[in-house]
Design a protein around this nucleic acid. Sequence first.
DNA 1: ACAATATATGAATATATGCTCATATAGGGG
DNA 2: CCCCTATATGAGCATATATTCATATATTGT
Lengths: 126, 126
Amino acid sequence: MVTRLDDPCCGGLHPDAVADVRSGQLSEPLVLSLSEAFKALADPTRIRMLHCLLQRELCVCDLAEVLGMTQSAVSHQLRYLRTLRIVKNRREGNTIYYTCDDAHIAGLLQMGIDHAMHGEANEGGA
Amino acid sequence: MVTRLDDPCCGGLHPDAVADVRSGQLSEPLVLSLSEAFKALADPTRIRMLHCLLQRELCVCDLAEVLGMTQSAVSHQLRYLRTLRIVKNRREGNTIYYTCDDAHIAGLLQMGIDHAMHGEANEGGA
DNA sequence: ACAATATATGAATATATGCTCATATAGGGG
DNA sequence: CCCCTATATGAGCATATATTCATATATTGT
């Protein structure tokens, strides 16, 4: 079972290379799990939200205020992140506080920041 | 200049928290650059492509063969990655070989893999 | 019970994304 | 020069995403 399409233009130009790489392939669930994690970080809004929530616990409307966004938009994105278990929330009376304590995401984000700051933009600047 | 929307439901519940987090905000270009990088990894196809191209140089049709995808689809994604300078290519006669030598991306991907494999799916299995 | 506040959520919408199909480009061999 | 192979690319399409708007839910205070 080779999982070939009908017309791969050339049936594998270098069979050895193909076989070689095939044996090292990532499993389907792993790939899906990976893309899911990276997707969470693949949006400017979510990056900013997570960066905030990693620094400090914030309620929804403070977050909205910081990001200059609608409460609704923020809430939708928080739901997205909640579904992925990337952020947690805590209720205190009427307000709900969110945090991000996901070490995985924090690590990826930090690594991205470190790398991107190799001569490009800096932090700071409200 | 506070960059406020017309109706932030509550005008910042905790002004100190808001000010605090505001001062640590990531700059706009940095955020965009970050999301761009994560976007490159936010798709199962591209993850598999990059994982292959990090292991070994491959021509387009070998890649297509390995991934079980159309040459066209692969080529489109390669263009995407080329635009972001994540992959390089080399021509040898009729065939074009691609590689990924982007340490940034490689690091992020590896970190993602390490983390995701904490009890979930493993490599191997083609 | 009622009003006010904070948050959540469904529907609609606009845009982005990933793939397919057809076709263009480019190099190699007769 | 013509044909074959490998790759690139534009258009179209179906789906995903991010935001907005209106409204629902939940908690507090009176």
